[in-house]
């Protein structure tokens, strides 16, 4: 590829990107990007991080055993030039059986151990206090609050603290990924399909971004979530309800595709 071509590409879109990132940074205040391990923002993140650490505790011994053995053989069995003859064994059935069966038991344990959390992350959000329809666009997110007739785009998602919030995700164009690490949630938003996730968060500011490559400005498709106490949320609702009062509180358009298994299981079509 020629350098001239490169630089011509570089000149094309650089500035608009910089502006967008600057705007996004300004919106997000100075809050750090929270993640589920260092600053979990609620029960979903806590449970997911705990399940991860549990699995990690099982995995660590295997890393350690392998590395200790590796270091040991390198030090102990290097050629010291003393004419030592190498050993000649080359099989040991009990040993081989053991190092097959023990890891097998461990991985089954690790998998089974993670399932309660998986079930919780998938089905734990009963009786949501708030359902929000999240619609992915190239390259912004649209949030609809059908209960309140609010429809905002390219803005911060505001939700009440300590309440089960249910997100129904879809997309109008390509596949997007809704990812907020601090809340322990990630789910793709696909066109023609509704996917679903839930969370219950502590007050705070959470940053995320689109995780499914969605085109030129994929990197710019940021997510900001503001979790506020209920009274502040009510105030926010009141403000936005009046603002978008002129808009008809249209329910989300019916989608031609069958509901996902998760929705079926939760009995809300």
């Amino acid at each position: 590829m020629s350098l001239a071509l490169l630089s011509s590409y570089a000149q094309q879109a650089g500035t608009s990107m910089a502006q967008a990132m600057a705007q996004a940074a300004a919106k997000g205040s100075a809050a750090p990007v929270r993640n589920a391990f260092s600053q979990p923002g609620g029960i979903v993140a806590i449970r997911a991080a705990a399940a991860s650490l549990r699995a990690f505790v099982w995995v660590i011994p295997f890393i350690l055993i392998a590395y200790i053995l590796l270091a040991y053989v390198i030090i102990k069995f290097r050629d010291k030039g003393d004419g030592r003859k190498p050993a000649t064994f080359h099989e040991n059935n009990p040993l081989e059986f053991l190092w097959t069966i023990i890891p097998l038991i461990v991985v089954i344990t690790v998998a089974l151990h993670s399932y309660p959390t998986l079930t919780f992350m998938e089905f734990g959000g009963n009786n949501p206090a708030l359902t929000i329809d999240v619609v992915g666009h190239q390259f912004f997110w649209e949030y609809k609050y059908p209960q309140y007739g609010i429809d905002i785009s390219n803005d911060t998602l505001v939700v009440p603290a300590n309440a089960v919030v249910d997100l129904d995700l879809t997309s109008v164009d390509v596949i997007h990924g809704f990812y907020v690490p601090g809340l322990g949630i990630q789910m793709d938003a696909l066109p023609g399909r509704i996917t679903n996730l839930w969370f219950k968060a502590k007050p705070g500011y959470y940053k995320g971004q689109c995780t499914q490559l969605c085109g030129v400005n994929h990197a710019q498709m940021l997510i900001d979530v503001q979790v506020v106490p209920n009274d502040q949320f009510q105030a926010w609702l009141a403000k936005h309800r009046t603002q978008s009062a002129s808009l008809p509180a249209a329910p989300p358009a019916a989608l031609p595709v069958a509901p996902t298994a998760a929705r079926k299981a939760r009995g809300k079509a």
Partner: peptide, 10 residues
């Protein structure tokens, strides 16, 4: 491990 995958997928 699915819960971990959700935290770091993509």
């Amino acid at each position: 491990v699915v819960p971990f995958d959700i935290l770091v997928h993509n």
